[in-house]
Design a protein around this nucleic acid. Structure first.
Lengths: 359, 359
DNA sequence: GTTAGCACTCTTGGATACAGAGTGCTAGAG
DNA sequence: CTCTAGCACTCTGTATCCAAGAGTGCTAAC
């Protein structure tokens, strides 16, 4: 991470690195010195460029696939680029307009927005995109419902104060009628409405509260708190994925093994469970290049992520997933704009009412 | 569809066709006459086999990629095979046991089961798998909840009698307090619990019922009925997808265009919307080979689907998706067993209580 | 009806050669 | 000290050819 400080290269070399990256990103083939002097007005000869390239290679920023090939950026080169060279430019105004337009045409559902965000992001960045629905860091119980499903099986459906919904089956050792369950639910709803999982636990431990209610109450309460905890930990929240086709067409995924990697990440994202929380806790756009952060063989894949939402209250993560050879500048613009947009939409949608009460 | 009747081939030719299909499915390379007499005890010479193969080709059941290659099954050949030649064998007992075991280790949630079913199916059939969660054909309202989100925005969360949950945002032209909304919800819940979407509509049209309640009631009722209708039409129900990696590794998807096709089908399954209902209405395992049913360019992809569930009340669809060169026999066994298993699980889970009341 | 034999076709893999792409280096100019 | 022209060198990509091999279709005999 802190390797950039000892890199000492001239302005022109920085310029050349930038050109190499831009060129390589768009063509996927190593860039030659000749190409650089032809396409860009550097006012030096190709020989000079070659000398600089040799130095850039010594610094580990570019690599040469074989002797008589041009240069391609190394992962370290990309990292240097995104940290020092890339100019953060906003998405063109007309694209912004087009995107906003799509959001105004769809029903005003948070989850629907998020799915659309992933889809638009995939198209805009021309790569795969992911997005998690927004969740509160503290979920307050709004209401829950007990349904008698069969003899000793109960379904518990809970609604959070922010509109999140969860359901879970519950096995008990006795038969209960729907009326009994409804009575219990009403009783507990009155006592627990507005509380978080932790607060419910507290309430259950207070002597007196658990007197004179049905024997399954502890079991119900336990389930409730565990469901709330799950919601707060963002588990069980589906990850929306879009645009896989875009990146599987990239030449780097021609080689058999590569595809496996990205599908693994994309399908059962065990990798996500460690990345997403870390993104949630930081401001701004996070860029993960190659196997920098993902465990083991996730080379060839880069991820650009950002958090969106309303401060602590309601937040999620979105971003693009693509080959390491990715137009980072454009990805960052897209992700950045999209997170801004989603945040705005959520803000407008949830503003005055839900604002006050969440601690 | 009714093309099989005019195919008239000898027993040995049938046998040869079977061998060709089995061999080709497992190796992905055209099968030669020599190979057939060597690997299998047909007691004839390769020349005889060649004569038969020429006839099978004339019947359109096999094709020859080029002059000096072996034969590969045509789509018609596969169809003939699955209809006339394939012996339906059950999944081996130990595999069945292993699968059941996995289901007993997981929480008893219908949706969780379905996801697991897709995952297990993908592994068992070694290809991609899909599954839709079970839905009732008639959803009865259990309970709904109105949440004040912001000034003129209300979230409606409804719970169906079978435990399905849906939520939707609602824009109204006036500000309502949470207390007012709760009062309205309580009132309407009392009147509407147990009704289907159609019955709610009826109720709303009865004179008198709509008197003396809040002005947003019609809007709430309209949203309710449309949500129930949506649930009944199985829209909005997520399709679980698993094991994409398995089939993208198959040699037939090396060619660029092919991958697109299957990803298209897999991601935004517009194709599903026409196939799933048709499978829902039929008993047994459905086999779709190549572009038989899917529109346009869905060649190279076959699908084996079956319905599962409890009669009319609660049903879904599951199946495997793979290349046309697919071990149909095994796929059918897997899909068949899995649908049986899921049906059983649902039966055990929902049996006595929910049974009686749905019309 | 079956089969041995054979000519014929087409693919596949390995050599070989060669043009082209790029570089690194050297020596000289500014 | 920096830049550049020039050139030798290396490596890839492509084309071509060739030989071996895989399979078939056909014919004639059993």
């Amino acid at each position: 991470m802190e390797q950039s400080h000892d890199i000492n290269i001239s302005d022109r070399q920085r310029q050349i690195l930038t050109i190499i990256i831009e060129e390589y990103v768009s063509t996927a083939r190593p860039v030659a010195s000749e190409q650089i002097v032809n396409g860009y007005s550097l006012n030096v000869s190709s020989a000079t460029v070659r000398n600089d390239m040799a130095e850039l290679e010594r610094a580990g920023l570019i690599v040469q696939p074989h002797t008589s090939a041009g240069r391609a950026p190394s992962e370290r080169g990309y990292r240097y680029f995104v940290e020092n060279l890339m100019s953060p430019k906003a998405l063109p105004a007309d694209e912004q307009r087009k995107i906003r337009h799509q959001f105004h045409q769809v029903a005003m559902e948070a989850d629907e927005w998020v799915r659309l965000a992933a889809s638009v992001l995939a198209r805009t960045a021309n790569s795969a995109a992911v997005a998690t629905p927004p969740r509160s860091t503290a979920v307050h119980l709004k209401h829950f419902e007990l349904l008698a499903i069969s003899d000793a099986r109960i379904m518990l459906v809970l609604v959070g104060h922010d509109g999140t919904v969860a359901q879970q089956m519950l096995n008990v050792d006795q038969d209960w009628s729907q009326d009994e369950l409804s009575a219990l639910a009403t009783h507990l709803n009155n006592a627990l409405a507005g509380k978080t999982g932790a607060e419910i636990e507290e309430w259950a431990n207070e002597p007196g509260n658990m007197h004179s209610i049905m024997v399954i109450a502890p079991s119900v309460l336990g389930t409730l708190t565990s469901m709330l905890a799950k919601l707060e930990r963002h588990e069980s929240s589906q990850i929306y994925r879009e645009g896989l086709a875009h990146i599987l067409n990239q030449p780097e995924f021609r080689e058999p093994g590569r595809m496996q990697q990205i599908l693994e990440l994309f399908e059962h994202g065990t990798a996500w469970t460690s990345i997403i929380p870390s993104v949630m806790n930081q401001e701004g756009v996070q860029i993960i290049i190659g196997d920098e952060a993902m465990g083991e063989g996730m080379s060839a894949v880069s991820v650009v992520l950002a958090r969106y939402g309303l401060g602590e209250k309601l937040a999620g993560v979105l971003g693009v997933v693509g080959p390491v050879r990715m137009p980072y500048s454009r990805s960052v613009s897209s992700v950045s704009y999209m997170s801004q947009l989603l945040s705005d939409l959520l803000h407008k949608s949830y503003n005055p009412h839900t604002g006050g009460e969440a601690e």
